[in-house]
Design a binder for these strands. Structure first.
Length: 580
RNA sequence: GCGCCUGUAGCUCAGUUGGAUAGAGCAUCAGACUACGAAUCUGAGGGUCAGAGGUUCGAAUCCUCUCAGGCGCACCA
């Protein structure tokens, strides 16, 4: 029985024991923590709160828990105000390994999210721009969370909502009409290259913003472009279609490298045909009013109004987001709608949710902005507009090249080095990105992002390589690997114990990840497990052991580690090589 | 100016929602391959948890103030 269930069971037994309306199993489970050292036990219950409710000193309570719960496969030691619970290691071993060997690739999953429907919006790049390092956070956080929710039985919708409309695009259009080279975006020409097209678009986009500083009239030209688009003028529309198609193809290619797929590709443009209807609805229901020639909605509690229509009559991102949210509600009736978008857009989402609420949409309470910190470049933020950006493709290439170099150094005879380098390089980027709290800002540094040593993706992958190598050798020798039935006489080493304990915790980790919408819990867990395994591996002989029972048991632990690490990496969208 | 966020070892970050002696990785130094893969493992040094008050059995965590940095504040997304 994995840790998650053991903890619940114990908490409800303790609640039953006290039999008081003020002591609830759930609260006990939440209070229980991990003792500072393994020797103290597996689970620590601080008795301070119980002391208040029961009006008894906390150390007395710890002692009474000890007397009542010791035996029955568990040892309880009172340590001052703490009751430290330690399951019989054999019991922990049997239940955990049983579960891993039964559920295999599904180990860690459950159906706690059954009948719940979640909509995720993430990645959401702008058309005509290559994916930059900033997009990686939204994409990876969203992808991992959606994977975890799926694994726990939720039904998920993964929407990539591309910015294919609005002033931003109009500016590109204006830039293209001034400096654009049409032959570069003509997909029918024999020499067409999507990469060259994207590079060209990026170049003129940056140029446009630079020129705007000296020629403000360019902005007027852009405004006209947007009007032409919203009026479906043929020339503008044709160019829009071309650029959109090229961008999406380029984007898919990059996402594919990180094993990321969506089940909905939508764009702001989707909502343009019906946008007048949305505007009318907002004006009527949310009490929009005219201010300085533009239409605004005043959201209670916010000093900045929601701007839904500009004075030139065109719409904004916010307007299209309103239409999109209504559409998603109608299509999916989700229990939650998560927007995985940078912290900087916090106000935007407050305005969006506030406006939806004013429109009478009670479901606006189900919407949540899952924000993340800014990517900094030195002390400046990354900005495509100013040309200060690292493109995702370049980053992945760089990571792969470095991994290849490392691989060649360490394992020159490896046959599929290129493939391995790709898994390791991309893995390092994915893992590294999810290795800190999503809300903290991160500073872009090549040596940090490309690290292959220490608490990194390759560390976890390397642990898996060790597992695989051992299991292959065992297979060749005809060794048995599995769950040893009777371990009552077996003396578990501390390294075995902490490995078992770590193996048991995958599901409780995933529940933490869902509770906080925080993928970090998972990466941290995988490091913890890999570390427990590497210590076990270093200290204890597996195939070298003279005792056949011990060999079988340890091989079983290796296989269980392989399954658990693999499941975890897959949730992150990472692949693991068999050799590296 | 107003609002939000952040400040923990030289660097990058954890700290299980208020609990035990504040922990990891990198870097530095010292060790472990005639052992199942050394992309590994073991150990050492390194801390006024930005600062000052407060709340209580107990604070890195909660409250107040100060300092430093970041982000946002209607016709961008």
């Amino acid at each position: 029985m994995p840790f998650f269930d053991l903890k619940r069971k114990l908490a409800s037994e303790i609640a039953d024991y006290f039999n008081s309306p003020d002591i609830k199993a759930e609260a006990l489970a939440a209070d229980a923590g991990v003792p500072p050292q393994l020797a103290l036990g597996h689970l620590a219950l601080p008795c301070f709160k119980l002391s208040k409710v029961l009006k008894q000193p906390s150390d007395m309570i710890a002692k009474s828990l000890t007397e009542h719960f010791s035996g029955k496969g568990i040892t309880v030691t009172p340590t001052g105000p703490y009751a430290n619970f330690k399951w019989d290691v054999g019991y922990l071993y049997s239940t955990t390994l049983e579960s891993i060997f039964t559920k295999k690739a599904r180990y860690g999953s459950d159906d706690s999210g059954k009948n719940k429907h979640i909509v995720f919006e993430y990645c959401s790049p702008n058309v005509a721009k290559k994916l930059g390092f900033q997009h990686i956070r939204s994409t990876l956080i969203g992808n991992t969370l959606a994977n975890v929710y799926d694994f726990l039985g939720y039904q998920t919708e993964r929407i990539n909502f591309v910015g294919d409309w609005g002033s931003q695009f109009a500016r590109l259009l204006a830039a293209f009409e001034t400096w654009g080279r049409p032959e570069l975006v003509d997909t029918t020409l024999p020499g067409f290259s999507a990469k060259a097209a994207m590079d060209h678009l990026f170049e003129i986009y940056v140029k446009f913003h630079k020129e705007c500083d000296v020629h403000p009239e360019y902005l007027e030209q852009a405004s006209k472009c947007l009007q032409r688009l919203e009026e479906h003028e043929a020339r503008a529309t044709d160019l829009w279609k071309k650029i959109r198609k090229i961008s999406i193809a380029a984007m898919d290619e990059t996402l594919e490298r990180m094993n990321i797929r969506f089940n909905h590709l939508e764009g702001e443009s989707t909502y343009i045909p019906e946008i007048q209807k949305t505007l009318k609805e907002v004006k009527e229901k949310a009490g929009a009013k005219l201010s300085e020639g533009a239409w605004i909605v005043e959201v209670p509690g916010l000093t900045t109004p929601a701007l839904v229509q500009k004075k030139d009559g065109t719409t904004l991102y916010l307007t299209r987001d309103i239409a999109a949210a209504e559409d998603r509600e109608k299509r999916f009736h989700p229990d939650k709608m998560f927007y995985v978008v940078a912290e900087q857009q916090k106000l935007h989402f407050q305005l969006l949710f506030g406006t939806l609420k004013l429109m009478g949409h009670e479901w606006a309470d189900n919407c949540e902005h899952v924000s993340f910190g800014t990517v900094l470049f030195g002390t400046e933020k990354m900005s495509t507009r100013e040309g200060r950006v690292i493109f995702l493709d370049e980053l992945l290439d760089e990571a792969k090249a470095l991994a290849l170099e490392e691989c060649t150094k360490k394992n020159p005879d490896l046959p599929n080095k290129d493939e391995v380098a790709d898994m390791v390089g991309v893995g390092a980027i994915i893992f590294g990105n999810l290795s800190s709290h999503r809300k903290s800002d991160i500073e872009f540094k090549w040596e940090t992002v490309l690290a292959l040593d220490g608490e990194t993706g390759p560390y976890v992958q390397y642990s898996l390589v060790r597992c695989h190598s051992l299991l292959e050798k065992a297979k060749a020798k005809g060794e048995k690997s599995g769950v040893v039935k009777d371990v009552s006489q077996y003396a578990f080493a501390p390294e075995e114990e902490s490995l078992i304990l770590s193996l048991a915790k995958l599901r409780s980790t995933l529940h933490l990840a869902v509770r906080d919408n925080e993928p970090y819990h998972l990466t941290y867990y995988l490091i913890d497990l890999a570390k427990a395994f590497n210590r076990f591996y270093y200290k204890l002989p597996v195939l070298q052991s003279n005792d056949p029972t011990q060999r079988e048991l340890r091989l079983g632990l290796v296989e269980a580690t392989q399954t658990t690490l693999t499941n975890g990496l897959e949730l992150l969208g990472m692949r693991a090589p068999k050799e590296m």
